[in-house]
Structure formats: C-alpha cells, structure tokens
C-alpha cells in the first residue's frame, strides 16, 4: 500500500502535483468501499487506475468528483481542498467527468447533451473543434442522445466536457464495450488531449489499451492503492500486473 506521496516520474519530482489524494475513504450506505486511497497526479499526466471489478476504481473517481454519499480524507486539486465541496463546486474548479455509463440524457437531443454542461473555464474547445475530433456527432445533432451507438455516445460524453474548458478529466472505462476501431479513435483522442496539456485519470480494465495512453498506472485493490507502475516499466512488471488483475 502507498502510504506517502506516490513515487512518480522525474517531472513529478519537480512539479507540484495537480491532484493529491490522501486517505480517501468512501461509503455506499453502510458499505465501506474505499479504505484510504493515496495517489498523486502531476499536471499534464495521464494516469490510470487499474484493478479487478469491485476494487474501488470507479468509486475513487466518484469520490474525487463528490458524487458519492459519504467520503472523507483529503482531495486537493491545484492547492484547493475539495473534500467538503458539493460536486457542482468541484466541477467549477475545472474537472470534467465522464461516468462509466456515459451519462447521455435520453430526454435531450445530441445537441442539447453537447451544450448542457456550462463553461467552467476559458479555453474549452469550440463546436467545430469537437466536430473535427468526432465527426459522427455533427451528423447526429438532432437525434435523441440515447439513439447513438455506444461509440458515438462515448464521443459525445467526452466532447461535451471538452467544451467546458475543464482541463482535468476523469474518464471511467471509456473503451468498455466498444469495437476495436472505436477504441483506437478514443485512444488517439486521449493522446491528442495529453499533447494539448490535459491531465487525465483513466479507469480501465483493459491494461493493453491503458499502456498506449498512460504515463503511470496505479493498481487498486480492496479500496486501496497497492502499487504504482511506470508505463515504461510495464513490460518488466507484466507478471506482477497479471497477478493483480487476475488475468
């Protein structure tokens, strides 16, 4: 288990973490799910949370975003403690959240889904830039949000938070259930966002995909971070990772 600031690449040694999570605990009702999560994310990094089903990866994202009933510990974003803030205030700090189920509203058209989140910071992508990234969305603007294919819904879910100016993205299993060609497109988008300076936490079960986009991987098990593997050390640690993930 990581008890202190996680070891990080060279740049993290010199740059203050953008997100610092310490002793994060969370509950669903009476069920205690996170037991003290610790990790850091440096500005401009793509970090994945890997782990088996039920390990606490999604709950970690929800806890950072403040959309879980009860949580405690410390979540500091760019020096601001967010643990006691409501999720709407956390979003206004510049975090964009794409939930596991994508969160496309059935009662809204594609265009309304895209335009729904308010701008939280300057510098968000314009509609034309989003359509360049995801051309399919432009052709389906008037359709009901949930009439899109799974891949198109994922693009819409990512596109709508890029409009807001959020520069720190929480992506929960963006490749789940998608065709390989769409996974490639999502991967290319994440790499492009990284080049543009976005900081991203990615929850993934598919570590082969994660390896193509991430700088570091935190392994979550039973509500704790139990290891951190640099992406360039992944091959050397593949046996250990298989053990963690039960592959």
């Amino acid at each position: 288990m990581l008890t202190e600031a996680a070891p990080s690449p060279a740049k993290a040694a010199t740059i203050a973490p953008m997100l610092k999570v310490r002793g994060l605990e969370a509950w669903y009702g009476e069920s205690h799910v996170l037991h003290g999560i610790d990790f850091d994310v440096a500005p401009g990094e793509v970090v994945t949370l890997l782990g088996r089903n039920g390990a606490g990866k999604t709950t970690t994202l929800k806890s950072i975003m403040g959309v879980i009933g009860k949580r405690k510990g410390s979540v500091v974003l760019e020096g601001a403690e967010t643990i006691n803030l409501p999720s709407r205030a956390i979003a206004r700090l510049g975090i964009g959240y794409v939930p596991e189920e994508r969160g496309i509203y059935a009662s809204l058209s594609v265009e309304e889904n895209l335009m729904l989140p308010p701008r939280v910071r300057p510098g968000g992508l314009s509609l034309e830039q989003i359509f360049t990234l995801f051309p399919n969305i432009k052709e389906r603007l008037k359709s009901q949000g949930t009439k899109l294919s799974g891949g198109e819904q994922q693009m819409l879910a990512i596109g709508r938070i890029l409009r807001t100016g959020a520069h720190f993205l929480l992506l929960d299993e963006p490749t789940e259930g998608l065709a390989p060609v769409i996974i490639d497109q999502i991967g290319a988008t994440i790499r492009r966002l990284k080049q543009d300076g976005y900081t991203i936490i990615l929850v993934e079960q598919n570590f082969r995909f994660a390896a193509t986009v991430a700088d570091r991987h935190y392994v979550v098990e039973q509500g704790r971070v139990i290891d951190m593997i640099e992406n360039d050390q992944l091959d050397a640690n593949i046996g250990k990772l298989h053990g963690y993930l039960g592959v």
């Binding site: 403040g66 959309v67 709407r88 959240y97 939930p99 509203y105 809204l108 729904l116 989140p117």
Partner: peptide
C-alpha cells in the same frame, strides 16, 4: 437551455450537478 437543465436534472440529478449546474 433552462428547460434542458430541468430535463437533465429530472433524469440524472447527480450527474447534472457534477457538470457544475446548481
């Protein structure tokens, strides 16, 4: 737009709040 907020909050208030909407 206000109506879209209302419909979104009706359908999924948790996520709508996580987008920064009060």
């Amino acid at each position: 737009k206000l109506g879209a907020y209302l419909r979104a909050a009706t359908e999924n208030p948790t996520l709508t709040q996580a987008f920064g909407i009060n």
